[in-house]
């Protein structure tokens, strides 16, 4: 009996020993392969990190390029643009080319670079339609005030301008010829592929007051490549779109923007949201003597003004 008691005590002591001899198991790490988990959201980017320096609405409503400036010698942008729920117009194509002189940065008084001086060229044609050289006007903020300035030239062609020329529709899912003449005997010509036309749809559910506002986005997905969604707001003027966030996801036709993202938008902008769908193709080319380093992009853009329920 004494032996049994001893064994009993040994067993109880072993039990207590085991109690203090524990290591927690590590979590099992899983490989993310399921877009349903994050509602097809792959990346979120703040597109207006310095609102006290740059005016991000510069040209955004028409180009979809939200960066305040691009650190490239040549920027060629070809955009087929649609609007839904806007007061003026439903379609606007916009083509432009800017040729930065990177040796001439433009700085504000704080020393922050606002861009580069844009040099003049012999001419630019889009599908053989001549673009007009115009002042490359930028706006910036200094001491809380908006300032306008001109930093060189940009070549622009819009649908409106084309009424007086050979009008052409933006050639979706095709290609568009760009010719840049540096001088009479020196030019550069390239065919830029264009993306399929994008058509988006936004359905809002929930409400800001209950902190459960959700935007369900749909579009004609191609299941190839990615798509960008820009959440912006209409400025008080009602014409310019101020971009806030850029969301990136697979071009699969759907994305959900949850309340955790939307509820932090400034109160004043809630009812003036613009959701911009952007399907983009960039053309990579080697550096050359005319364009030097370049950023060439064609894109289909659909801006949708959203009525947010109370």
């Amino acid at each position: 009996m004494r032996v049994m008691k001893t064994i009993k005590y040994i067993l109880i002591a072993s039990t207590l020993f085991m109690l203090f001899r524990c290591t927690n198991p590590s979590p099992t790490e899983l490989i993310q392969d399921n877009t349903a988990v994050n509602e097809n959201l792959q990346q979120i980017e703040v597109v207006s990190p310095d609102p006290d320096t740059y005016v991000y609405s510069n040209g955004y409503d028409s180009t979809g390029i939200v960066e305040p400036y691009l650190n490239k010698s040549s920027v060629i942008s070809l955009s087929g643009i649609k609007y839904s729920n806007f007061d003026d117009g439903s379609q606007a194509d916009y083509y432009y080319a800017v040729f930065n002189d990177k040796s001439m940065p433009i700085l504000n008084t704080m020393g922050t670079r606002l861009g580069f001086w844009a040099r003049m060229m012999g001419g630019v044609r889009f599908n053989n339609v001549v673009a007009s050289p115009m002042q490359n006007r930028i706006r910036y903020l200094q001491n809380g005030e908006v300032h306008d300035t001109v930093i060189g030239y940009r070549f622009v062609l819009t649908r409106k301008m084309m009424h007086s020329h050979n009008k052409f529709e933006f050639p979706y899912n095709s290609k568009l010829n760009v010719r840049v003449d540096e001088s009479r005997n020196s030019f550069f010509q390239i065919d830029v592929p264009t993306p399929a036309e994008i058509s988006g749809e936004v359905n809002a559910s929930g409400s800001p007051s209950r902190n459960n506002l959700t935007l369900n986005l749909k579009w004609n997905g191609t299941n190839q490549g990615i798509i960008e969604i820009v959440i912006g707001v209409l400025e008080d003027s009602g014409n310019e779109i101020f971009p806030l966030l850029k969301l990136t996801g697979a071009d699969n036709g759907k994305m959900k923007i949850s309340s955790s993202i939307l509820e932090k938008l400034p109160d004043r902008v809630y009812k003036k949201l613009v959701i911009t769908f952007i399907r983009r193709q960039t053309k990579e080319i080697p550096e050359n003597s005319i364009l030097k380093d370049s950023y060439i992009v064609s894109q289909s853009i659909h801006n949708i003004k959203v009525e947010i329920p109370d």
């Binding site: 099992t28 994050n38 979120i44 980017e45 703040v46 990190p49």
Partner: peptide, 15 residues
């Protein structure tokens, strides 16, 4: 007790 951890697939880019 079982735990899992996975990357939600969302990347944040501030600048």
């Amino acid at each position: 007790h079982q735990q899992f951890i996975f990357n939600s697939g969302v990347k944040l880019v501030v600048s």
